[in-house]
């Protein structure tokens, strides 16, 4: 429902009493309202929807999710080896419970 895109905060300022910032989306720079992310700092990434930053991207969780995907590749190779040795496949779901 909601087109929201990650961008990196380049600068922060006050305008009409509202916390605003310049946010860079892969080379496209726009003014974004940062009022809802009082803790966000220059260099951080945020999800932006209709000109408002609504969520700071948690780098640790992002890394964790990507690690999960990478393990899937290793797991698939293991599964392929297991199948070759004719052993039953093991479900992968238990290995990837949500990050805290």
């Amino acid at each position: 429902m909601c087109l929201a895109v990650p961008g990196q905060v380049e600068s922060i300022r006050d305008e009409h009493g509202i916390r605003m910032g310049r946010v860079n989306f892969g080379g496209v720079v726009k003014d974004v309202c940062l009022a809802y992310l009082p803790e966000i700092a220059v260099g951080d990434y945020a999800i932006v929807h209709v000109g408002f930053a609504i969520s700071k991207i948690d780098e640790a969780s992002a890394q964790e999710t990507l690690r999960t995907f990478a393990e899937l590749g290793i797991l698939e190779e293991e599964l392929a080896e297991l199948r070759e040795s004719d052993e039953p496949a093991r479900p992968a779901a238990d290995k990837t419970e949500p990050a805290p």
Binding site: P6, Q8, G73
Partner: peptide, 24 residues
């Protein structure tokens, strides 16, 4: 774009789809 491109990898997508196939 960082935080988008990493989540579009075709190989990983195929692995996830295959995993869903194994589960279902």
């Amino acid at each position: 774009m960082k935080h988008l491109a990493e989540y579009r990898d075709a190989d990983t997508a195929r692995r996830l789809a295959a995993e869903i196939g194994r589960l279902a």
